[in-house]
């Protein structure tokens, strides 16, 4: 028994999912389904590619053409799919470690090429599936099982990294702000080049417990109280923005999309 949206876009026999109670990923996965529904896409023309990690289980639960690949390589497989079948909507769901550590190289080069893929990063600031090791997005000073005295690295700002590498659309949403996040994902899918939507998730089991963030409800509340819209952020100082979650469309630029450029070369050199 499920809602119409869940019946349409999920493999109901694979539910309930195995994510922990209160995990933000469940909310974000539904936002992806809602975005596809709002855009009126044919779900048989949508390909969902994932890597490895908690986030990447989405490819098993969602009823599109799906591919659950190796750790960090979702974008590499997705690049192959998009190059072979440019008419398909290719969406990657990745985790923070998956996208920015193990697959960091794929992320920057997919961005550099501006290939028409929508990269959605479920960022819970930790490696959840393997037991709470700190990731490239774990905030400075916060704890993980491999950072028992606090993380001494600076975290990546994934949308900034992607923008600097050439992504032509970047945005940040959150598990709390589901309605806006759905809209940002819609925009990302609609955008022709490479788009990156970082979605701030919550991991009450590992990140939350290690850092004494309270229950899932407390963590959602933290997101509610510490989210700042892009518009508001423009009026704030860097000190005021410290520790805040800036939500909204972060950047948009123009550059020819890779598969279109490639088709032009084929048309030019192919013997008729």
């Amino acid at each position: 028994m499920a809602s119409n949206l869940v019946k349409k876009y999920f493999r109901e026999d694979h539910l309930p999912h195995i994510w922990c109670p209160g995990c933000g990923h469940g909310v974000l996965m539904k936002d992806v389904a809602q975005a596809v529904e709002n855009l009126g896409l044919d779900k048989d023309k949508v390909v969902l590619v994932s890597g490895i990690g908690c986030s990447s289980r989405a490819a098993g639960y969602m009823d599109f053409n799906t591919m659950h690949t190796t750790h960090g390589r979702a974008l590499a497989f997705a690049t192959g799919i998009k190059m072979a079948r440019p008419e398909l909507e290719v969406i990657c769901i990745m985790g923070d470690g998956d996208a920015s550590a193990i697959g960091g190289n794929h992320l920057i080069h997919a961005a550099r090429r501006n290939i028409g893929i929508t990269a959605i990063v479920f960022n819970n600031d930790i490696y959840g599936m393997t037991g709470g090791q700190y990731s490239p997005t774990t905030p400075y000073g916060e704890k993980g099982t491999t950072a028992p005295y606090g993380n001494i690295d600076r975290p990546f700002d994934i949308p900034k990294v992607a923008e600097a590498a050439g992504a032509t659309y970047t945005a940040r949403g959150s598990a709390y702000d589901a309605v806006r996040t759905t809209k940002l994902i819609e925009e990302g899918i609609r955008h022709k080049g490479f788009s990156v939507i970082e979605c701030a998730s919550i991991c009450p089991t590992y990140y939350g417990r290690k850092n004494k963030k309270g229950s899932a409800v407390d963590m959602f509340r933290w997101q509610k109280e510490n989210s700042v819209s892009v518009e508001k952020a423009k009026t704030m100082t860097p000190e005021e923005l410290e520790g805040k979650l800036v939500i909204g469309e972060l950047s948009r630029s123009e550059f020819p999309e890779l598969t279109e450029q490639y088709q032009k070369i084929i048309d030019k050199v192919q013997i008729k």
């Binding site: 309930p16 999912h17 209160g22 990923h25 909310v27 539904k30 309605v179």
Partner: peptide, 13 residues
Amino acid sequence: CEIRCPDYAIWLE
């Protein structure tokens, strides 16, 4: 509740 439930266990029909 439907928007926030991470487990799709509640919805409006």
